[in-house]
């Protein structure tokens, strides 16, 4: 049913970009060892080490979304899901953003794919993520990624595909340290039965957290780093992983989220945004295929 020409055009652009990047590396006669330190606001320090003379292989990530172990189905006529607070709900839309997938070694070093991926459950193409950057061979004991953008990358208007998707976060909520509001991290929309048994809508949207409880108002980087547990991953060829969003976890751990309290209009609600940040790290699991 779907026309794929847009993706083909973007693939041409992306392929051109990738080829140029790797061509530049190949011009160097000396082995390239690049080390850089990334400081996230969650105080996680990771060291990226790229050993250019290693073999590298392509990674494919299957993006899956589940509620209590069952695949998310959009726009169900009933409310098939239940969260920890006992709210029954359905989902009409789920879109989210991850960035900087990193592979960690036992010695503390890691390799980061400096990239992002936008998932739209209505767009089946987005459920497969194949970064153009390949992963060096080796044994990896951990994987992590950022949910949303960190402050460095959350640059308003910088990403045409996200602009096309109307993924922007209002500047009035996102502040202006980077000229505007940056981007959403997640849009999880649906309906639930409220305490009065009334069919009610909810919009669990996440992005920069505006804190109006202090003066002057502050705008807090609200991404988090997901570190799902994995068994050792040996990269000695192209490989696939499944990244699973367990939707019920957004509403469960450590803060039990009641949709009667936080349902609509939470983008500018500081407490709601920070609670999503707290609950987020337990949302994701990774399966090695």
């Amino acid at each position: 049913m779907k026309n794929s020409s847009r993706f083909k055009i973007s693939a041409i652009l992306f392929a051109s970009f990738t080829i140029l990047s790797f061509a530049a590396c190949e011009d160097d006669d000396e082995p390239v060892i690049e080390t850089r330190v990334v400081q996230s606001t969650d105080t996680l320090r990771v060291t990226d080490t790229l050993q250019a003379n290693l073999m590298s292989y392509s990674a494919t990530f299957r993006m899956e979304q589940r509620v209590n172990g069952n695949a998310v189905v959009l726009n169900t006529p009933n409310m098939p899901y239940t969260n920890a607070a006992g709210n029954t709900f359905m989902i009409s839309r789920l879109r989210y953003l991850i960035s900087d997938v990193a592979f960690h070694k036992a010695d503390g070093s890691c390799f980061t794919i400096d990239d992002y991926h936008f998932v739209n459950l209505s767009d089946t193409n987005s459920l497969t993520y194949r970064p153009s950057i390949e992963v060096p061979e080796g044994d990896y004991t951990g994987i992590s990624f950022k949910f949303g953008f960190d402050r460095e990358d959350n640059i308003d208007g910088a990403y045409p595909d996200l602009n096309s998707a109307s993924w922007g976060w209002p500047s009035g909520i996102g502040g202006s340290p980077n000229f505007g509001g940056g981007y959403h991290f997640m849009q999880l929309d649906g309906r639930f039965m409220d305490n009065n048994n009334v069919d009610t809508t909810f919009n669990t949207h996440m992005g920069t957290a505006r804190n109006m409880n202090v003066s002057p108002t502050t705008y807090e980087d609200n991404h988090f780093v997901a570190n799902p547990t994995i068994s050792t991953l040996t990269v000695d060829g192209d490989f696939e992983l499944t990244i699973v969003m367990n939707v019920e976890q957004w509403y469960e751990d450590p803060y039990q989220w009641d949709l009667n309290m936080y349902n609509r209009g939470i983008m500018g609600n500081y407490d709601a945004q920070r609670k999503l940040n707290l609950n987020g790290p337990s949302v994701f699991t990774v399966e090695i295929l």
């Binding site: 308003d156 602009n163 109307s166 922007g168 209002p170 500047s171 505007g180």
Partner: peptide
Amino acid sequence: CFHCHGNINLRN
């Protein structure tokens, strides 16, 4: 209006 018609922060 921006969630549906886009162009929040004038980027669409």
